[in-house]
């Protein structure tokens, strides 16, 4: 029962992550695109957490932690790039 709920929620979050692509493509400025990318990363982490419960694997949560850390590094790097320091 719970598994069904998680599968449904994972599908909805995946749709949301794809929906954000609109802002990623349209965003008038570079920071707008960066915000959209950041949001997408958070959705992907959410998705990974729920799929970890569905497939019963702790490894996916570990990957989600590493993904969060890497997306943070990516966001910081994009921010530096926008500031013009790279």
């Amino acid at each position: 029962m719970s598994i069904m709920i998680f599968i449904f929620a994972a599908a909805v979050v995946a749709v949301l992550a794809i929906g954000v692509v609109g802002r990623l493509a349209a965003g008038p400025t570079v920071p707008d695109r960066a915000v959209a990318l950041d949001t997408m990363n958070t959705f992907v982490i959410s998705l990974m957490m729920m799929l970890a419960a569905v497939y019963d694997s702790v490894v996916m949560v570990d990957i989600a932690i590493v993904y969060a850390a890497l997306s943070f590094v990516g966001t910081m790097f994009i921010a530096r790039f926008i500031e013009g320091e790279v």
Binding site: T29, V30, P31, A34, D38, T75, A79, G84
Partner: peptide, 12 residues
């Protein structure tokens, strides 16, 4: 990350 993006946006 949000803080860094906001600062970068304002500085740009």
């Amino acid at each position: 990350g949000a803080h860094a993006l906001a600062r970068a946006a304002h500085r740009s």
